[in-house]
Design a protein around this nucleic acid. Structure first.
Lengths: 255, 255
DNA sequence: CTTTGTGAATTATTTCACAGCA
DNA sequence: TGCTGTGAAATAATTCACAAAG
């Protein structure tokens, strides 16, 4: 049973829709920026604009968390930051390991956003013996042989895979066997994992292909542009750009 | 009307659902692998397994493209590769520029997956004068001052932003003004763009936060595990892991 | 008078399940 | 027979639109 779960719509519910969960980080980022500017409260309209969604969606999203706003006023920025952080589990420390310290792995290790919110790079792991001991982003790279020990010693439950595609599944299997239950995969491969393990993928190549699809369509339409006939205007055509800037569905990366 | 569009369900239709479009690259990758192994045909069941989705979804997805399979047999690998490539617009060349050649930008420039399928890194652009002229991945970095000229001279319609968050919107505005209509944003910011411009984002930080959310839930459930009572087991919790390996919704990156 | 919170309506996506073609 | 293609049913997500709280 995929991450099993019993389920129950009953009572209070704790069933936050996946689509909502995916937007919480966006709200949190916008709120953090407001917090840094010492803005005390914000309306759903303003916050929605900052996060690039519409206000109805934002309010509905927040309604799954509880009633944290004040009618006629808006939301208390600090309070919301705390509530969302807690909901996302960011009030605790999450040690993360990055496996595969090539160009991308190094870029991820150097990426600041990590430390900021609950995440801490506990270790960098690479299969190349020549890399062992060399510091990347101030952290010494360790050899793959010690992967299991590193995971266990640091209590790591989240792993980032930035290896070549060919090595990804094997690395994934070892991470999972060692106790990792969440994986962020940058390798252009579909990983298979047992139930209870979450995988998210980031794939540049897929993203570019999706853009190419829409790009091609734009080009084709220029030609058909004229015929704005009054017929079945049919097909909605929502793709990305919802209202404003929006970014949308899934993500991807190299392929 | 996001990216405008007139549309017409009529006749053949050309309204491929966004969720389907997002999966086509996955199918294409799996098919390409089969093609390299000279596998002539594949069933929806096999291909679905390779792509990490279920076969009903795959067949439904393909049904939007047309009837490319043979009942009782399956799909011709080469033919499907061609059809999907064409649908995604990969049979043409897409010059791409990468703006912001830091750790990440360099990693992207070095990333092989680019060239493979229709995409070509036409130029690397950075604001640091010290970078100008230095080759990264064999391509000389050019200065931001020449951004507009580079876009126009190369007929670029897809831009990748890998700058710090603070510079992203400005770079985006210039790209759009110069003619770019599709943007892949790696900077942890919401970009605003005019209608007709597509933006997709890749955000490491958001992905990690989504994983943390599910991770936290897993931990919480261990405690409640026992009480499989018929009462308010509450919280649904369908999150990721669909059936098999699946990878799911949106994607993200640095924050 | 303003802005939240939320049922109800709408739209999108997934899954079922099976008729029908090769 | 085996497997595709697809209506119809089931789920999920979004948007509307408004009552009610401050």
């Amino acid at each position: 049973m995929a991450t099993g779960r019993t389920h129950r719509p009953a009572t209070r519910s704790r069933g936050i829709p996946e689509a909502t969960v995916a937007r919480l980080p966006l709200y949190l980022r916008a709120l953090t920026a407001l917090s840094e500017r010492s803005v005390p409260t914000v309306s759903s309209e303003e916050l929605a604009a900052a996060a690039g969604v519409n206000s109805a969606k934002l309010r509905k999203d927040f309604s799954y968390l509880g009633s944290y706003g004040t009618r006629g006023v808006g939301y208390d920025v600090e309070y919301l930051v705390y509530q969302i952080s807690r909901e996302l589990g960011l009030t605790q420390d999450w040690p993360v390991v990055i496996v595969g310290i090539g160009n991308l792995g190094a870029a991820l290790a150097n990426y600041g956003g990590f430390a900021s919110r609950g995440f801490r790079v506990a270790a960098l792991i690479d299969a190349d013996p020549a890399m062992a001991g060399k510091p990347v982003a101030g952290i010494p790279v360790q050899h793959t042989d010690d992967l299991e020990k590193i995971i266990k010693d640091n209590g790591v439950s989240i792993g980032v895979i930035a290896t070549p595609a060919g090595a990804a599944q094997q690395v994934c299997d070892r991470l999972v066997a060692a106790g990792v239950t969440s994986i962020l995969n940058f390798a252009p491969t579909v990983l298979s994992v047992p139930d209870g393990v979450d995988v998210r993928k980031v794939d540049l190549s897929i993203e570019l292909q999706i853009l190419a699809f829409h790009e091609q369509r734009k080009a084709g339409e220029e030609a058909v542009e004229a015929m704005t006939d009054g017929l079945p205007a049919s097909a909605a055509a929502q793709h990305s750009a919802d209202k404003g800037p929006d970014g949308d569905v899934p993500a991807v990366m190299p392929a």
